[in-house]
Design a protein around this nucleic acid. Sequence first.
DNA 1: GTTTGTCGGCGACTTTTGTCGGATTGTGGT
DNA 2: ACCACAATCCGACAAAAGTCGCCGACAAAC
Lengths: 228, 228
Amino acid sequence: MVNRPTETQLLENLHTLPFFQDLDLGTTAVLAAQTRWQTYQTGEVIFWEGESAAGLYLMHAGWLKVVKTTPSGREQVLRFFGPGEMFNEIGALANQPNPATAVALEPVGLWLLPRQIMVQLMAERPLFAQHLIQQLAGRVIHLVGLVADLSLRPVVGRLASLLLTGATDDILHRPRWYTQAELASRLGTVPDVIQRALRQLEDSGVIAVERHHIRVLDREKLAEIAAQ
Amino acid sequence: MVNRPTETQLLENLHTLPFFQDLDLGTTAVLAAQTRWQTYQTGEVIFWEGESAAGLYLMHAGWLKVVKTTPSGREQVLRFFGPGEMFNEIGALANQPNPATAVALEPVGLWLLPRQIMVQLMAERPLFAQHLIQQLAGRVIHLVGLVADLSLRPVVGRLASLLLTGATDDILHRPRWYTQAELASRLGTVPDVIQRALRQLEDSGVIAVERHHIRVLDREKLAEIAAQ
DNA sequence: GTTTGTCGGCGACTTTTGTCGGATTGTGGT
DNA sequence: ACCACAATCCGACAAAAGTCGCCGACAAAC
């Protein structure tokens, strides 16, 4: 269970986002008054694919995944979202059914900025609309990269890239929720294959796999493998 | 070589697009005056991945593909574009380097709406910005679908889907540029695999493959295969 | 009409990815 | 400390996708 932050914390949080930096104090206050606090348990669904969405979500605590799922249960993670990040622009603002499903990976607390007030902001404030366009452009760029990865690169290469970009100080920390299954789903494959790939990289001496983190031993060689 | 249409044809063309429907006559005229006519030969590149782009492109004649390419030469088609369609919102309006490359598949004639005037419209006209947001949302939705397809469905399934959605009156016409190689690149695989997949579908009697078109014989069975 | 290049077709083979059953090891709850 | 569950690990196997070499058919160019 995640405790509800104070109104002040929300206001500070809003102000750190480029999205809302340009708004005057009055508008921000109205916005803050309209947002709803919501919490979810591990495994709970924030929204389903196909629903038209309630509004923009602003993460406060916890992590979640946005996924596409097959009837057989296999899934592809589009992105993980953590504290401070915002999502669901499509569902909230483009008047389109949401293309994917969001699931909590651990206890999540977030703010829901209702659709209606967002639509209003979008229509009235050119700068807000511009930020939104930037944000969507970012999504497109990310997805284009994902498509290219899935289509053109082998699993080991994708894993190597993820390790390189995801590691801070050559260490990729894996919280409880970040299992090999999630890693696999993120990279578009299955856990067994990830396990093999990890062992392969470990055997060639470029990484060291431990229980809750992966250490990058040889960045250069890893980058070579990633390039494939 | 594609002949340059008249100014009048351009104006008519602009007006059929939801994008520009809300503009007053004066603005449309200014817009039309600023656009540049450009032609490309088969195989010519309209823009490269990584470039920051010149503006929005409005197709008049011909077909092109937007692709990601590996050093080894394999490519993934993100989308084909034909007459009446607009592209390059990212490069033109989000101030981001373009994430992909555009290549002409046959002689192409198109209008280039310069970046600057688009940026101006975007900042001044809320409705224009809204259309842009809709357009980008469409791109995101399309890409999310592509990701899910590549990751979660086998080649035959993807091919079956393409045949179902691409066929008019149960016939998918294949112009000269629409070779098995392009089909493969569109579906994220290689020509040989497409050839096998086509033969497999033909052997099970659901389609008939001829030189310049593919006929759907059994829509229901094809839909079943597509569902896999 | 011949030539030349591209496209399509096909079988054999390799590599990569996915699947299955089961052993093993942590971890949280009691 | 014990139990139950989830996560990991592993070898063997199956299926899907990719590669290669070659041949034949068509189409534009000369």
